[in-house]
Simulated scan of single mutants.
Amino acid sequence: MTEQAPASSVQHLGFAWFAMVMGLCGLSLAWARAVPHWGSVALQVSLGLGVLAAGVLTLLLLGQLWRLLRYPAALLADARHPLRHVFVAALPSSLVLLPTVWVVHQGYSLWADGLWMLGAAGLLLATLGVVGRWLQPGLTAQDFWPGITPALFIPVVGNVLPALAGASLGHPVWAAAQYGLAAVLWPVALALVWVRIGMWGLWPQRLLPTTFIMIAPPSVLALSGHALGAPALVVHMLAGVALFFTLLSFTVLKRCLQQPFGMPFWGMSFPLAASAALGLLLSPEPGLAQWLASLWLGVVTGVIGALLLATLRGLMRGQLLQPEGPAPLPKLVSHQAQSVARA
Protein backbone atom coordinates (compact mmCIF):
# COMPACT_ATOMS: atom_id res chain seq x y z
CA MET A 1 0.00 0.00 0.00
CA THR A 2 1.50 3.32 -1.07
CA GLU A 3 1.87 6.06 1.50
CA GLN A 4 -0.42 9.01 0.82
CA ALA A 5 1.26 12.40 0.39
CA PRO A 6 0.41 14.96 3.08
CA ALA A 7 -2.21 17.51 2.15
CA SER A 8 -1.01 20.96 1.13
CA SER A 9 -1.49 23.57 3.83
CA VAL A 10 -0.87 27.24 4.51
CA GLN A 11 1.20 25.95 7.41
CA HIS A 12 3.98 25.40 4.87
CA LEU A 13 3.72 28.85 3.25
CA GLY A 14 7.39 29.75 3.72
CA PHE A 15 8.91 33.18 3.24
CA ALA A 16 10.49 31.98 -0.02
CA TRP A 17 7.06 32.54 -1.62
CA PHE A 18 7.70 36.29 -1.48
CA ALA A 19 10.31 35.73 -4.19
CA MET A 20 7.29 35.71 -6.53
CA VAL A 21 6.59 39.34 -5.66
CA MET A 22 10.25 40.23 -6.10
CA GLY A 23 10.36 38.59 -9.52
CA LEU A 24 7.15 40.22 -10.75
CA CYS A 25 8.20 43.66 -9.47
CA GLY A 26 11.63 43.24 -11.02
CA LEU A 27 10.08 42.31 -14.37
CA SER A 28 7.72 45.30 -14.12
CA LEU A 29 10.70 47.61 -13.58
CA ALA A 30 12.53 46.00 -16.49
CA TRP A 31 9.58 46.60 -18.82
CA ALA A 32 9.44 50.20 -17.58
CA ARG A 33 13.03 50.55 -18.83
CA ALA A 34 11.77 49.44 -22.25
CA VAL A 35 9.19 52.25 -22.53
CA PRO A 36 11.56 54.59 -24.44
CA HIS A 37 12.05 51.82 -27.02
CA TRP A 38 8.63 50.14 -27.21
CA GLY A 39 6.33 52.95 -26.10
CA SER A 40 2.88 52.41 -24.61
CA VAL A 41 2.98 48.62 -25.05
CA ALA A 42 5.91 48.33 -22.64
CA LEU A 43 4.21 50.77 -20.27
CA GLN A 44 1.01 48.71 -20.14
CA VAL A 45 2.93 45.46 -19.63
CA SER A 46 4.90 47.03 -16.81
CA LEU A 47 1.74 48.36 -15.18
CA GLY A 48 -0.04 45.01 -15.50
CA LEU A 49 2.89 43.19 -13.90
CA GLY A 50 2.89 45.72 -11.06
CA VAL A 51 -0.81 45.14 -10.41
CA LEU A 52 -0.24 41.37 -10.46
CA ALA A 53 2.64 41.74 -8.00
CA ALA A 54 0.43 43.80 -5.67
CA GLY A 55 -2.27 41.12 -5.80
CA VAL A 56 0.22 38.32 -5.07
CA LEU A 57 1.72 40.31 -2.20
CA THR A 58 -1.72 40.87 -0.68
CA LEU A 59 -2.55 37.15 -0.84
CA LEU A 60 0.80 36.17 0.64
CA LEU A 61 0.47 38.68 3.49
CA LEU A 62 -2.98 37.34 4.31
CA GLY A 63 -1.61 33.81 4.17
CA GLN A 64 1.26 34.69 6.51
CA LEU A 65 -1.17 36.37 8.90
CA TRP A 66 -3.33 33.22 8.94
CA ARG A 67 -0.18 31.16 9.44
CA LEU A 68 0.85 33.37 12.36
CA LEU A 69 -2.54 32.93 14.02
CA ARG A 70 -2.95 29.19 13.36
CA TYR A 71 0.62 27.87 13.06
CA PRO A 72 2.93 30.27 14.93
CA ALA A 73 5.42 27.49 15.66
CA ALA A 74 5.88 26.82 11.92
CA LEU A 75 6.52 30.48 11.21
CA LEU A 76 9.01 30.72 14.07
CA ALA A 77 10.72 27.54 12.86
CA ASP A 78 11.31 29.16 9.46
CA ALA A 79 12.89 32.19 11.10
CA ARG A 80 15.23 29.95 13.13
CA HIS A 81 16.00 27.36 10.46
CA PRO A 82 19.73 27.29 9.54
CA LEU A 83 18.91 27.31 5.83
CA ARG A 84 15.48 28.92 5.43
CA HIS A 85 15.97 31.89 7.77
CA VAL A 86 17.58 33.98 5.01
CA PHE A 87 14.32 33.93 3.01
CA VAL A 88 12.64 36.05 5.70
CA ALA A 89 14.24 39.05 3.98
CA ALA A 90 12.15 38.37 0.85
CA LEU A 91 9.19 39.94 2.69
CA PRO A 92 10.73 43.38 3.36
CA SER A 93 12.36 43.24 -0.09
CA SER A 94 8.86 42.92 -1.57
CA LEU A 95 7.67 45.84 0.55
CA VAL A 96 10.45 47.97 -0.96
CA LEU A 97 10.02 46.85 -4.56
CA LEU A 98 6.26 47.39 -4.83
CA PRO A 99 6.48 51.12 -3.94
CA THR A 100 9.37 51.36 -6.38
CA VAL A 101 7.07 50.15 -9.16
CA TRP A 102 4.44 52.66 -8.01
CA VAL A 103 6.92 55.54 -8.10
CA VAL A 104 7.94 54.66 -11.65
CA HIS A 105 4.32 54.84 -12.82
CA GLN A 106 2.63 57.33 -10.50
CA GLY A 107 5.34 59.30 -8.74
CA TYR A 108 5.36 60.11 -5.04
CA SER A 109 2.53 59.03 -2.77
CA LEU A 110 2.24 58.87 1.00
CA TRP A 111 1.39 55.16 1.08
CA ALA A 112 4.35 54.30 -1.16
CA ASP A 113 6.64 56.34 1.08
CA GLY A 114 5.39 54.59 4.20
CA LEU A 115 5.61 51.11 2.69
CA TRP A 116 9.09 51.85 1.36
CA MET A 117 10.29 52.96 4.81
CA LEU A 118 8.76 49.87 6.41
CA GLY A 119 10.47 47.61 3.90
CA ALA A 120 13.82 49.42 4.14
CA ALA A 121 13.80 49.19 7.94
CA GLY A 122 12.76 45.53 7.69
CA LEU A 123 15.72 44.80 5.43
CA LEU A 124 18.08 46.34 7.97
CA LEU A 125 16.60 44.20 10.73
CA ALA A 126 16.74 41.07 8.57
CA THR A 127 20.40 41.72 7.77
CA LEU A 128 21.14 42.31 11.44
CA GLY A 129 19.39 39.05 12.31
CA VAL A 130 21.34 37.02 9.75
CA VAL A 131 24.76 38.50 10.52
CA GLY A 132 23.99 38.44 14.25
CA ARG A 133 23.57 34.65 14.06
CA TRP A 134 27.24 34.43 13.08
CA LEU A 135 28.24 35.98 16.40
CA GLN A 136 26.18 33.71 18.64
CA PRO A 137 28.17 31.81 21.28
CA GLY A 138 28.57 28.13 20.64
CA LEU A 139 27.96 28.42 16.90
CA THR A 140 29.40 25.37 15.17
CA ALA A 141 30.30 24.71 11.54
CA GLN A 142 27.21 22.50 11.23
CA ASP A 143 25.05 25.44 12.32
CA PHE A 144 26.84 28.01 10.18
CA TRP A 145 27.58 26.52 6.76
CA PRO A 146 24.10 25.21 5.80
CA GLY A 147 22.94 28.84 5.64
CA ILE A 148 25.73 29.91 3.31
CA THR A 149 24.02 29.68 -0.07
CA PRO A 150 23.32 32.33 -2.74
CA ALA A 151 20.04 32.99 -0.89
CA LEU A 152 22.25 34.76 1.65
CA PHE A 153 22.37 37.67 -0.81
CA ILE A 154 18.67 38.39 -0.18
CA PRO A 155 19.13 39.81 3.34
CA VAL A 156 22.80 40.81 3.11
CA VAL A 157 22.75 42.59 -0.25
CA GLY A 158 19.01 43.33 -0.28
CA ASN A 159 19.87 46.66 1.34
CA VAL A 160 20.70 47.95 -2.13
CA LEU A 161 17.02 47.78 -3.16
CA PRO A 162 15.87 50.93 -1.29
CA ALA A 163 18.18 53.04 -3.47
CA LEU A 164 16.08 52.25 -6.55
CA ALA A 165 13.38 54.70 -5.40
CA GLY A 166 14.94 56.34 -2.33
CA ALA A 167 15.85 59.61 -4.03
CA SER A 168 12.45 59.88 -5.75
CA LEU A 169 10.72 59.43 -2.40
CA GLY A 170 12.90 62.07 -0.74
CA HIS A 171 15.28 59.77 1.15
CA PRO A 172 18.59 59.96 -0.75
CA VAL A 173 20.74 59.84 2.40
CA TRP A 174 18.93 56.82 3.82
CA ALA A 175 19.10 55.06 0.46
CA ALA A 176 22.81 55.83 0.08
CA ALA A 177 23.53 54.53 3.59
CA GLN A 178 21.87 51.19 2.88
CA TYR A 179 23.56 51.07 -0.51
CA GLY A 180 26.90 51.41 1.26
CA LEU A 181 26.01 48.59 3.64
CA ALA A 182 25.15 46.32 0.71
CA ALA A 183 28.35 47.26 -1.13
CA VAL A 184 30.43 46.34 1.92
CA LEU A 185 28.63 43.08 2.72
CA TRP A 186 28.46 41.78 -0.84
CA PRO A 187 32.16 40.79 -1.07
CA VAL A 188 31.91 39.20 2.39
CA ALA A 189 28.89 37.09 1.42
CA LEU A 190 30.44 36.22 -1.93
CA ALA A 191 33.64 35.04 -0.27
CA LEU A 192 31.66 32.87 2.15
CA VAL A 193 29.78 31.28 -0.73
CA TRP A 194 33.03 30.40 -2.53
CA VAL A 195 34.53 28.97 0.67
CA ARG A 196 31.46 26.83 1.20
CA ILE A 197 31.71 25.46 -2.35
CA GLY A 198 35.43 24.77 -2.06
CA MET A 199 35.45 23.15 1.37
CA TRP A 200 31.97 21.74 2.00
CA GLY A 201 30.42 21.33 -1.42
CA LEU A 202 27.44 22.83 -3.20
CA TRP A 203 24.10 23.60 -1.56
CA PRO A 204 21.28 21.02 -1.63
CA GLN A 205 19.92 20.02 -5.03
CA ARG A 206 16.53 21.60 -4.41
CA LEU A 207 18.23 24.96 -3.79
CA LEU A 208 20.31 24.78 -6.97
CA PRO A 209 18.08 27.35 -8.79
CA THR A 210 19.08 29.92 -6.15
CA THR A 211 22.49 29.97 -7.83
CA PHE A 212 20.95 32.59 -10.12
CA ILE A 213 20.64 34.95 -7.15
CA MET A 214 24.37 35.62 -7.62
CA ILE A 215 23.36 37.77 -10.61
CA ALA A 216 21.32 40.15 -8.47
CA PRO A 217 23.93 41.98 -6.35
CA PRO A 218 26.05 43.44 -9.18
CA SER A 219 22.96 44.11 -11.31
CA VAL A 220 21.07 46.02 -8.62
CA LEU A 221 24.23 47.74 -7.36
CA ALA A 222 24.64 49.06 -10.92
CA LEU A 223 20.99 50.11 -11.27
CA SER A 224 20.84 51.72 -7.82
CA GLY A 225 24.25 53.28 -8.30
CA HIS A 226 23.02 54.91 -11.48
CA ALA A 227 19.97 56.24 -9.62
CA LEU A 228 22.24 57.69 -6.91
CA GLY A 229 24.57 59.32 -9.46
CA ALA A 230 27.44 56.82 -9.54
CA PRO A 231 30.01 57.34 -12.33
CA ALA A 232 29.31 55.51 -15.58
CA LEU A 233 32.59 53.63 -15.24
CA VAL A 234 31.42 52.02 -11.97
CA VAL A 235 28.06 51.08 -13.50
CA HIS A 236 29.80 49.45 -16.48
CA MET A 237 32.19 47.56 -14.20
CA LEU A 238 29.31 46.14 -12.19
CA ALA A 239 27.51 45.26 -15.43
CA GLY A 240 30.50 43.20 -16.46
CA VAL A 241 30.40 41.30 -13.16
CA ALA A 242 26.65 40.75 -13.58
CA LEU A 243 27.22 39.34 -17.08
CA PHE A 244 29.82 36.91 -15.74
CA PHE A 245 27.51 35.61 -13.01
CA THR A 246 24.68 35.31 -15.55
CA LEU A 247 26.81 33.05 -17.73
CA LEU A 248 28.05 31.14 -14.68
CA SER A 249 24.53 30.53 -13.40
CA PHE A 250 23.42 29.01 -16.69
CA THR A 251 26.03 26.26 -16.25
CA VAL A 252 23.75 24.72 -13.58
CA LEU A 253 20.49 25.21 -15.49
CA LYS A 254 20.39 21.64 -16.80
CA ARG A 255 20.77 20.24 -13.29
CA CYS A 256 18.07 22.62 -12.03
CA LEU A 257 15.59 21.33 -14.60
CA GLN A 258 16.27 17.70 -13.69
CA GLN A 259 14.25 18.04 -10.48
CA PRO A 260 10.55 18.73 -9.82
CA PHE A 261 9.42 22.34 -9.68
CA GLY A 262 9.53 24.00 -6.28
CA MET A 263 9.51 27.54 -4.93
CA PRO A 264 13.34 27.83 -5.01
CA PHE A 265 12.95 28.14 -8.79
CA TRP A 266 11.53 31.62 -8.16
CA GLY A 267 15.02 32.56 -6.98
CA MET A 268 15.84 32.84 -10.68
CA SER A 269 13.19 35.47 -11.39
CA PHE A 270 14.32 38.72 -9.80
CA PRO A 271 18.03 38.34 -10.70
CA LEU A 272 17.16 37.70 -14.36
CA ALA A 273 14.74 40.64 -14.37
CA ALA A 274 17.41 42.88 -12.83
CA SER A 275 19.89 41.86 -15.51
CA ALA A 276 17.31 42.66 -18.20
CA ALA A 277 16.68 46.10 -16.69
CA LEU A 278 20.42 46.74 -16.55
CA GLY A 279 20.84 45.72 -20.19
CA LEU A 280 18.17 48.21 -21.24
CA LEU A 281 19.74 50.94 -19.09
CA LEU A 282 23.08 50.47 -20.83
CA SER A 283 21.66 50.47 -24.38
CA PRO A 284 19.75 53.74 -24.78
CA GLU A 285 20.56 54.15 -28.47
CA PRO A 286 19.13 52.00 -31.30
CA GLY A 287 21.52 49.33 -32.47
CA LEU A 288 22.71 45.80 -31.80
CA ALA A 289 23.09 46.33 -28.05
CA GLN A 290 19.52 47.58 -27.72
CA TRP A 291 18.22 44.70 -29.85
CA LEU A 292 20.03 42.17 -27.66
CA ALA A 293 18.74 43.84 -24.49
CA SER A 294 15.16 43.73 -25.81
CA LEU A 295 15.59 40.09 -26.81
CA TRP A 296 16.90 39.27 -23.34
CA LEU A 297 13.87 41.01 -21.80
CA GLY A 298 11.64 38.78 -23.89
CA VAL A 299 13.49 35.65 -22.75
CA VAL A 300 13.27 36.68 -19.09
CA THR A 301 9.55 37.42 -19.49
CA GLY A 302 9.09 33.93 -20.89
CA VAL A 303 10.98 32.39 -17.96
CA ILE A 304 8.89 34.21 -15.36
CA GLY A 305 5.72 33.36 -17.26
CA ALA A 306 6.74 29.69 -17.13
CA LEU A 307 7.35 30.00 -13.39
CA LEU A 308 3.86 31.43 -12.93
CA LEU A 309 2.28 28.57 -14.88
CA ALA A 310 4.31 25.98 -12.97
CA THR A 311 3.24 27.55 -9.66
CA LEU A 312 -0.44 27.54 -10.60
CA ARG A 313 -0.18 23.94 -11.79
CA GLY A 314 1.62 22.91 -8.60
CA LEU A 315 -1.04 24.54 -6.42
CA MET A 316 -3.90 22.95 -8.36
CA ARG A 317 -2.29 19.52 -8.05
CA GLY A 318 -1.44 19.96 -4.37
CA GLN A 319 2.29 19.58 -5.05
CA LEU A 320 3.27 22.83 -3.34
CA LEU A 321 2.74 23.97 0.27
CA GLN A 322 4.18 20.65 1.40
CA PRO A 323 6.53 19.98 4.32
CA GLU A 324 10.19 19.96 3.34
CA GLY A 325 12.41 17.04 4.17
CA PRO A 326 15.60 17.62 6.15
CA ALA A 327 18.32 19.24 4.07
CA PRO A 328 21.55 17.28 3.75
CA LEU A 329 24.35 18.62 5.89
CA PRO A 330 27.44 20.10 4.26
CA LYS A 331 30.21 17.70 3.44
CA LEU A 332 32.04 18.63 6.61
CA VAL A 333 30.50 15.50 8.15
CA SER A 334 31.97 13.22 5.52
CA HIS A 335 35.33 15.01 5.74
CA GLN A 336 35.43 14.40 9.49
CA ALA A 337 34.39 10.79 9.04
CA GLN A 338 37.18 10.28 6.50
CA SER A 339 39.71 11.75 8.92
CA VAL A 340 38.55 9.42 11.66
CA ALA A 341 38.72 6.45 9.30
CA ARG A 342 42.27 7.29 8.29
CA ALA A 343 43.29 7.60 11.94
Rank of each mutant, 00 (worst) to 15 (best):
M1C: 13
T2P: 15
S8C: 14
S8V: 12
V10H: 10
L13T: 04
F15T: 00
A19T: 15
L24I: 05
L24A: 04
L24T: 07
G26F: 07
A30G: 11
A32T: 02
R33M: 09
V35H: 05
H37P: 07
V41Q: 11
A42E: 03
V51S: 04
A53M: 05
T58K: 01
T58W: 14
L60K: 04
R80D: 15
P82S: 09
R84T: 08
H85F: 07
V88G: 00
A89W: 02
A90T: 14
P92C: 13
L95H: 00
L97N: 00
W102R: 05
G107I: 01
L115K: 03
M117I: 13
L118F: 10
G119P: 02
L125E: 00
G129D: 08
G129N: 13
R133I: 01
W134F: 15
Q136Y: 12
F144M: 08
P146N: 06
I154M: 11
P155T: 15
V156K: 03
G158T: 04
A163T: 04
A163V: 04
L169I: 04
G170V: 09
G170H: 11
A175L: 10
A176T: 11
Y179I: 06
G180P: 07
V184C: 11
A189W: 03
V195Q: 14
V195P: 00
R196M: 06
W200K: 01
W203Y: 05
R206T: 10
T210W: 00
A216V: 06
V220A: 06
L221M: 14
G229T: 00
A230R: 06
A230G: 04
Q258V: 03
P260W: 09
P260C: 10
F265N: 00
G267P: 03
M268Y: 01
F270Y: 13
P271E: 05
P271V: 00
L272S: 08
A273Q: 02
A273G: 07
A274F: 01
L282W: 02
L288C: 11
L292F: 11
S294F: 04
V299T: 13
A306Y: 11
L307H: 08
A327T: 01
A327F: 08
L332N: 01
H335P: 03
A337T: 12
